[in-house]
Nucleic acid binder design. Structure first.
Length: 264
DNA sequence: ATGGCTGGTAGAACCAGA
């Protein structure tokens, strides 16, 4: 008996400030599992009640005061919760769970990496590359069907940004980041689900800056949010969509939700 | 025209995001 499972990832830029639109999204789309990044809240202050009321009673939360923070909220049971410190500095950027069918769901918030694409001039950029380096080592050890999703903070393809040439020196689209992301992809034999369904070179963005006067008119977007799967899930994944309409909501996140459906 | 905005936290002429 196959069970269809819809999984959404969304960098929410404060789950408390946006609890109303999270509720609206869950009522409209009702994914089985929601992976949030940038929750910006310590675990004891996480707004659990709304999720419980909508049936998301299984929660795996890894937050901290002020910055970062991830959470996986689910209608189906979550077990074997793990928190990896791929930045080796204690920041809350990962939570992993096992699903009832044995597959693992890894929710990750890869660091943005600051402004300068040089690890000697900018330690944050070095931390970002090292974060990828530890994910590469981890990828080589995976022995279960695995989904890794979240805000990767890299837009790898020219069609993943509004202007490839102009963004080559902008952190998120530099060749050094694209190269290490490609190395990660190869290390785990990962498939990029977004581009499995919405083929390059079709425009595909998940983030637009708050600073644009009219985000839709200027459309200076980037695809920073991703969902990747191991080869054993290739025959199970049914769809991938991005909910661009959420960027138009009042007080939106600068990221939009991405959702894939699986036949487990 | 890549910062023109945003949230958290402090109580900033702040920090961080990307």
């Amino acid at each position: 008996m196959t069970q269809k499972v819809r999984i959404t990832s969304w960098n929410i830029n404060s789950v408390r400030a946006r609890i109303g639109i999270v509720e609206e999204f869950l009522k409209k789309e009702s994914p089985d599992i929601l992976c949030l990044q940038e929750t910006k809240v310590a675990d004891d202050l996480f707004p659990r009640a709304m999720f419980e009321q909508l049936g998301y009673v299984h929660m795996a939360i890894n937050g901290q005061k002020m910055h970062h923070g991830v959470a996986t909220l689910s209608k189906i049971a979550l077990t074997d919760i793990e928190k990896f410190d791929w930045q080796a500095n204690g920041e809350a950027r990962h939570i992993g769970v096992a699903l009832p069918n044995g597959a693992r769901l890894e929710n990750v918030y890869i660091p943005a990496g600051g402004d300068i694409a040089d690890r000697d001039e900018n330690p944050k950029f070095g931390q970002k590359l090292d974060f990828f380096g530890r994910m590469i080592q981890w990828s080589k050890t995976i022995d279960k069907p695995t989904i890794v999703t979240g805000d990767f903070n890299v837009a790898p393809l020219p069609s993943d940004v509004w202007n490839h040439k102009q963004l080559l020196k902008v952190v998120s689209h530099t060749p050094i980041e694209v190269d290490i992301m490609d190395a990660l992809k190869a290390a785990g034999n990962w498939t990029d689900v977004g581009r499995k369904f919405i083929k390059d070179p079709e425009r595909l963005f998940t983030w637009w800056s708050y600073r644009a006067k009219d985000w839709r008119a200027s459309d200076r977007g980037r695809r920073l949010d991703h969902m990747w799967i191991t080869p054993d899930l290739l025959s199970k994944v049914l769809s991938h969509e991005v909910s661009e309409y959420c960027r138009d909501w009042e007080k939106p996140s600068d990221h939009i939700p991405i959702t894939s459906e699986f036949a487990f």
